[in-house]
Simulated assay, not measured.
Amino acid sequence: MSDASVTGDRFGPIDIYLLGLPGSDLDSATLSALVDLADTGLVKLLDLVLVTKAEDGNLTLVEVEELPDGFEIDIASLGATGLVGHDDISELAASIPAGTSALLVAFELVYQRELAARTARSGAVLLGYERIPAPIVNALVDTIAPNSKV
């Protein structure tokens, strides 16, 4: 029996990413990269929504179940379609430049489910959490140790 089943947790923490697309439409390379990453088991792809922002600022949403031909994804493999809601979309859509598209993707970082279950079982309580984006970490490490091969 896993620690997650002991605590009754079905999911660990969920990260939502807004991925700006290289063009104004969904491209197969981006969707393939997400599916390939999920296939590694490092993350679980829970939900995704294609958001297109017209020049006038109007949004068009395409739920994962409605992706156009050529962009099919195994819906049964997704963990929680519908998880990304209109509040998430409204908040994050401001970052999408007019005339472009983005994917709003919900991922569970699988190791975090185990971490949450084990710490909860030990009696520990999460008091804070902060993520430092990779570009910032890499720039900082380059500044501190420019020849580091970490």
Rank of each mutant, 00 (worst) to 15 (best):
T52N: 07
L21C: 03
A93G: 04
A33V: 02
R118F: 07
A124S: 13
A98K: 13
D9R: 14
V137F: 12
E72K: 10
V137H: 09
R131I: 11
G70K: 05
R118H: 11
V137K: 11
Q112Y: 13
L34A: 08
S148Y: 08
E63Q: 15
D27C: 07
A94C: 13
T81S: 09
S5W: 09
G82R: 01
P68A: 13
P97L: 14
T30G: 01
A38F: 10
L46S: 01
A80N: 10
D39E: 15
Y111M: 15
Q112N: 14
A80I: 02
A139K: 10
D69R: 11
D9V: 05
A106L: 03
R131A: 15
L34E: 07
L78Y: 00
Y17K: 04
P68G: 14
D69L: 13
D69V: 12
L48H: 01
S122G: 13
S148F: 07
K149N: 10
P68N: 09
D47A: 01
V51A: 02
L103E: 04
I144T: 08
V49G: 00
I73G: 00
T52A: 05
K149V: 08
D74G: 07
T60I: 12
V49F: 02
L103C: 02
L67S: 04
A33N: 10
A33Y: 10
L26R: 00
Q112C: 14
A93W: 03
S5Q: 14
F71I: 03
L26V: 03
D87L: 12
A4L: 11
S101A: 15
L46W: 02
S77A: 15
T100I: 10
P13I: 12
V137W: 09
I132T: 06
V110T: 12
V64Q: 03
A139S: 09
A124E: 14
I96N: 06
S32W: 10
G85K: 06
L104V: 00
E114V: 09
P22V: 00
